[in-house]
Amino acid sequence: MPNDDIMTTKELADYLRIAEKTAYRFASEGKVPGFKVGSAWRFRKGEIDRWIAQQEQEGKQK
């Protein structure tokens, strides 16, 4: 995703290799960082990468 810093729910799902429905649920529940444009969720790739790193660190602490 060279210049496209913003991802759709489908792109997020592909990126995380999860179902699109799961990505939408995670966003709705505030489990992943995102924002709404109208009624559609959008995600900044940099924030998602930081969230992944944070999840990895929390997993190591358990």
Rank of each mutant, 00 (worst) to 15 (best):
Q57G: 02
I52N: 03
R50M: 06
V37E: 13
G59Y: 01
V37P: 00
F43N: 10
Y24I: 06
E58F: 02
Q57T: 06
A53S: 12
G34I: 00
A40W: 04
S39H: 06
Q57L: 11
A27P: 03
V32L: 06
T9F: 09
K60Q: 13
S39R: 08
Q55S: 06
T22Y: 12
Q57R: 14
E47K: 04
K31Q: 14
Q57F: 11
L16S: 05
E58P: 00
G59L: 02
E47S: 10
T8H: 08
G59S: 04
Q55F: 07
D14C: 05
W51C: 07
G46D: 14
I52E: 05
I18P: 05
I52C: 02
Q54M: 09
R17Q: 15
Q61H: 07
A40I: 01
R44V: 04
E11Y: 08
V32M: 05
A13K: 04
W41V: 00
Y24G: 08
Q57K: 13
G59H: 05
R44F: 15
D4F: 02
V32S: 06
K21W: 12
E11F: 08
T8Q: 09
S39Y: 03
G34F: 06
L12I: 07
F35G: 06
V37Q: 09
A40V: 03
G59K: 04
A13D: 12
Y24S: 14
A19Q: 08
W51L: 01
D14G: 11
R50W: 09
K21Q: 14
F35V: 09
W51P: 09
G59C: 00
S39V: 03
A27N: 03
A53N: 12
Q61V: 04
T9P: 12
A23S: 04
E58C: 01
Q55P: 00
W51N: 04
G46N: 13
D5C: 08
G34K: 02
S28Q: 15
A40K: 02
E56W: 07
K60M: 01
E20Q: 13
Y15A: 02
R25Q: 13
I48Y: 05
K31F: 15
K60H: 03
S28H: 13
K21F: 12
R25T: 15
